[in-house]
Every structure is written in structure tokens, then in C-alpha cells.
Design a binder for these strands. Structure first.
Length: 109
DNA sequence: TCCATGACTCCGC
DNA sequence: CGCGGAGCCATGG
């Protein structure tokens, strides 16, 4: 899992650890699994996320700026925002309040 | 093994 | 503060 022969597996495992009401940036996730700069691959991994992995809260992964990845998508975009708000994620207009909703694995907070 | 793609990020204007 | 371009790295054909 983590690291060897499973970049995507590491992403799924970490995203699955994100508690409700919290979010992480793509770059943060990549760095957390040991591959800083691979933010695009995190999104790519979630894009390839199979239906079986419905246990992975992909909606809790947003951009470093706090804006949603699907901001321009009227279908998935609105759904992601609805899911996050339903979990109690603080929003600042159209973007997430990373200062409060941002979650770091090691801190456990 | 090489080439093309992409749910991103940083930097400059 | 918004827009555009270049850089990055893993995955699939």
C-alpha cells in the first residue's frame, strides 16, 4: 500500500482517513504520502476511483486555494459542495475555509 | 521504453 | 484579485 507499487492506493487510504467536516488539498495529500508535487496524480487517482471504493470521501479533497475542483461542473461541482456543507465544512463564499477545515494527518486534528 | 494525458500548483502580468 | 502560461509526476497505450 502506501508508497510502493500503489500511489493511488496510498491516496485512497489517506483520503479515507479524512474525518467528516474536514478537507485536504491535493498537494497536501501528495506530500503526506511522500510525493510532493504530485498533486495532479492525486486528482488523477480519484478520477480513476472505481465505484467499489465508495468508502473514499473524494469530495473532501479540494484545491489548495479552497476552491472546489469541479467549480465549473454544474453536476459534480454542486454535488461536492452540497456534500461538504452537509458534513459541516465551513465555506467562505464559493470556497472552503482551509484555515479551519484544513486537516493534517499527523496532528490528528 | 517512449509519448500523451490530466479532479493541480506556482509565478508573472 | 483575475487570467494565462510553464512545471510536475504517475498512469495507460
Amino acid at each position: 500500500m502506501r508508497g510502493a507499487g500503489g500511489f493511488r492506493a496510498s491516496v485512497y487510504a489517506l483520503v479515507a482517513r479524512i474525518p467528516a467536516g474536514r478537507v485536504m488539498g491535493y498537494g497536501h495529500v501528495a506530500a503526506a504520502i511522500g510525493v510532493p508535487g504530485a498533486a495532479r496524480q492525486v486528482g488523477y487517482a480519484l478520477a480513476a476511483l472505481p465505484p467499489e471504493r465508495d468508502d473514499v470521501p473524494w469530495q473532501r479533497v479540494v484545491r489548495s486555494s479552497g476552491h472546489l475542483a469541479f467549480a465549473g461542473d454544474p453536476v459534480r461541482g454542486s454535488r461536492q459542495r452540497a456534500l461538504l456543507q452537509g458534513e459541516g465544512v465551513p465555506f467562505l463564499g464559493d470556497r472552503v475555509d482551509m484555515a479551519r477545515a484544513g486537516w493534517i494527518p499527523d496532528t490528528g486534528r
